[in-house]
Simulated assay, not measured.
Amino acid sequence: MKIAISGGTGFVGAALTDQFIKQNHHVYVLTRNPTGKPEKENVTYIEWMHDNGELPTLSGIDAFINLAGETINGRWTDEKKEKILSSRIHATREILKIIERMESKPKVLINASAIGYYGTSKSKTFDEHTSTSGDDFLAHVTAEWEKEAMKAEQNGVRVVRTRFGLILAKNEGALPRMTLPYKLYVGGPIGSGKQWYSWIHINDVVGMIDHALNDDSLEGAVNATSPHPVQMDDFGKILAKTLNRPHWLPLPAFVLQIGLGEMSTLILEGQKVVPRKALDHQYKFMYPTLSSALAAIFDN
C-alpha cells in the first residue's frame, strides 16, 4: 500500500510510519521541511503547506492519514487557541485539495480527532452513538475539524474520524509528565480524583488505525480508547503500583488552574469514553487494561 501521512514525524505519526515500514508499505510523509530528515527505506518525505499555495503532486496513494495540527500543550492564550483550530482546518483543506486533484482517489482518509469532542463529564458514558458534541473549546475544535474532513466523502473517499484518548507511551505524550511526581515520591490524586481518564496504549492506536485501513466497512467516528477507562485516583494507584512508589500527596485543582489556565480542564474534568465501534468491528486490543498497558511500557 502507498500511505500518505501528514504530521508523520510526530508522536503518533512516527509510530505509524515504523509499523507500516515493517509491513512493507510505502509511506509518504507530508512535512513543511523535508530536508535533514532521517533516511528510511520505504519512506519519502514530501514538502507541503507552501506559503505560495503550491500543492504537492501525489499519485497512486491508497490512503491518507491526517494528524497535522498545533499541539494543545501549553497555556491556551487567544493566539494559541486560534492556532490550534486554524492549523487543523488548514491542513485538512490542503489534503482535500490534493485529493481533488488526484486522478485516482485514495480509498480512505483517516483523520485525527479527540474525545474532547464529547465535552467533559464525571457521570456520563460516551460512545460513537452520542449524537451531540460538548460546548467547550476542544469540543468546538474537534467538531469543526471533523466536519472539514467529512468533505472527502464528496470525492468517494471513505472517512474515518479517530477520536484519540490519552495516549500512553514511555517517552512521549503525557505519561512522562504524569510519571515524574511518582518517581520523586510525591505522586497522588489530582483535583477530585473522580475525573475519568479514557486512555489507550500507543500500540493500540497504531493497531486500530491499521485495522481501519483494512476494514472497508469501518467509517465515521471511531473512539481510539481502551475499553476500560479509569478514574484519576485509580489511574494514579495503578501507576504507583507499577513503579513501586507511593500514591499519597494530592495536587489541588487550583494549582493546575493557576499554572495551566483553561487547559487544566483536560486534566481536572475528563470524560468516560468507550470504543464501541472498534469492538463491534472485532478489533482485538493488545492492552485492554491499564495495568497491562503500564506493565508493558515500563518493562521495556
Results as ranks from 00 to 15, higher is better:
Q154M: 13
Q154N: 14
Q154H: 13
G156M: 08
V159I: 04
R161Q: 13
R163S: 02
I167A: 06
K170M: 04
N171Q: 11
E172L: 11
E172V: 07
L175A: 11
L175D: 04
M178L: 15
M178G: 10
T179C: 08
L180E: 06
L180N: 06
L180R: 14
Y182T: 13
V186M: 13
V186E: 01
G187F: 13
I190S: 07
G191M: 10
G191Y: 08
G191A: 12
S192P: 00
K194C: 01
H201G: 12
I202N: 01
I202Q: 12
N203F: 03
D204F: 06
V206D: 05
G207H: 02
M208G: 12
M208L: 15
D210Q: 11
D210G: 07
D210K: 14
D210N: 15
L213E: 02
D215L: 04
D216Q: 14
D216G: 03
S217Y: 04
S217D: 06
G220P: 03
G220Q: 11
A224L: 11
P227G: 08
P229S: 13
P229M: 13
V230P: 09
V230Y: 07
Q231R: 15
Q231S: 04
D233C: 09
F235I: 09
G236W: 07
I238P: 00
T242L: 03
L243A: 09
N244G: 03
P246H: 09
H247V: 10
L249H: 06
L249T: 12
P252E: 08
V255N: 01
V255R: 02
L256E: 03
L256M: 13
Q257G: 12
Q257R: 15
I258F: 09
G259K: 05
G259V: 05
G261C: 10
E262I: 11
M263L: 15
S264C: 08
E269N: 14
Q271M: 05
V274G: 01
V274R: 02
P275A: 07
P275K: 06
R276F: 00
R276H: 00
K277N: 04
K277E: 01
A278C: 03
L279K: 09
L279Q: 12
D280H: 13
D280K: 15
H281G: 05
Q282M: 07
Y283M: 10
Y283S: 10
K284L: 03
K284M: 00
F285G: 09
Y287A: 12
Y287H: 14
T289I: 05
T289K: 08
T289R: 08
T289F: 00
A293N: 07
A293H: 06
A293D: 05
L294F: 00
L294V: 02
A296E: 14
A296P: 00
A296R: 08
A296S: 15
F298S: 10
N300L: 10
